[in-house]
Write a protein that binds this DNA or RNA. Structure first.
Lengths: 220, 220
DNA sequence: CCAAAAGTGTTAGTGCTACACCCATGG
DNA sequence: CCATGGGTGTAGCACTAACACTTTTGG
């Protein structure tokens, strides 16, 4: 039996959050778990992950980012029998989307780290967070957490939230705007709070960041 | 059905080579394929990869490096039916080990790139090579291709072979010996060819390279 | 005017590339 | 002695961190 489990990450209320489902049936009755389900007989793995994503959030993969994370196959990971789980990682913007899928009555966004999850989901979640943290360094995927247009300060908040660090706003602005293909100006400006209006940007076309944005050494 | 496929890489005759098996049964009769096999009912995925590695090469994973690569689940990837393949990547030293496992009569090391493989193994091999290339940048895994003790020039040949580049011997020496925990001097020296004797080194204890050894931009 | 946020300029330091140069061996 | 490969020093360049400073808004 092959299943797909999803680590859906977003940023809500200045915190990194993961979509979890409270289990209504044994095993692990009442515990939080990652959303997931079995792969259909003639279904591709990525397609299964997209389907689960749509069922849980109503979002398509194009709105954010979806990639394979790793595969977990400890024979004892599911007490009901042998289930190999292919985990996918998604980075999503904080959309005001009602989490209202078929079986999502008890789904909700929970701040990470979240411990005590069902099955081996603590491990899968930890792997997903670590993957997200390192991908922000050398890819422009931080924009997957943002709406279609965003300010540099909002992009910086993504980094600060995911990495749990403070970054210098001035140096960050320069690095982001000078990295080829990371962001493109839309030409518009907005005032988010008080202070000088900020330019709006959209995602650029690059898939790799050069130069990379390295995390401060303190977190290593 | 869940199978484990292996991308076993080594450096032989100044070239990056992969262990392939010539298929003796349909489908893809007579074509080269990656070694692999089905996961046993109560077997962990990593254990299955280790078992296959041992069967094909007689080597234990400790001699080199073994890690999960990715999982491939296109419903059409195997014409016999649905098989999800969890691919593992191994980096191994060039040991004079007879490739003499159970079904390895037709196994041999082949230079990469190797095209026209059975199933979706072209894609898996390409992914494995790309993973190996990028891992050399930020981890000390190049030492997995080396015997227990080696010279800096031998380590440099690993990088040059895998990256298909030339590196400046002087700068390479400095970077490797100054990166914390990459290599440790054994105190011994050897003369490999003519010229001044070289110091011997063994693997250090670091798992991440700092600073990283970046590939020249030409290959990107 | 003042506070706050956006954005620019400047300086000191780090790591990299390129290459001049010295060291230790075999022939 | 010379050729060959091992290893160190150093100058110029790219990028970075730290922070002074200017710009543009709201109150």
């Amino acid at each position: 039996m092959v299943a797909v489990d999803l680590v859906l990450l977003t940023i809500r209320q200045q915190a990194l959050q993961v979509l979890l489902i409270r289990r209504g049936i044994p095993p692990f009755l009442g515990r939080w778990a990652l959303p997931g389900g079995f792969v259909l007989p003639a279904e591709d793995l990525f397609a299964a992950a997209e389907r689960e994503l749509r069922e849980e959030t109503g979002l398509s993969a194009a709105a954010g980012h979806l990639e394979q994370l790793a595969t977990y196959g400890d024979p004892a990971r599911d007490p009901r029998g042998r289930v190999v789980a292919v985990a996918y990682l998604a980075l999503l913007p904080d959309l005001p989307v009602p989490v209202a899928g078929s079986d999502a009555a008890s789904a909700s966004w929970r701040p990470v780290p979240a411990e005590g999850l069902a099955f081996d989901h603590d491990r899968i979640l930890a792997d997903g967070i670590e993957r997200a943290r390192s991908k922000l360094e050398y890819t422009p995927l931080a924009t997957a957490f943002c709406p279609p247009s965003f300010t540099i300060a909002e992009l910086r908040e993504v980094y600060e939230t995911v990495w749990r660090t403070r970054l210098d706003p001035r140096n960050f602005h320069r690095k982001v705007t000078s990295a080829e293909g990371f962001v493109e100006p839309t030409g518009e400006t907005v005032i988010r709070d008080r202070g000088r209006p900020a330019q709006l940007f959209r995602r650029g076309s690059a898939t790799l960041l050069h130069p990379a944005l390295l995390r401060p050494a303190s977190s290593a």
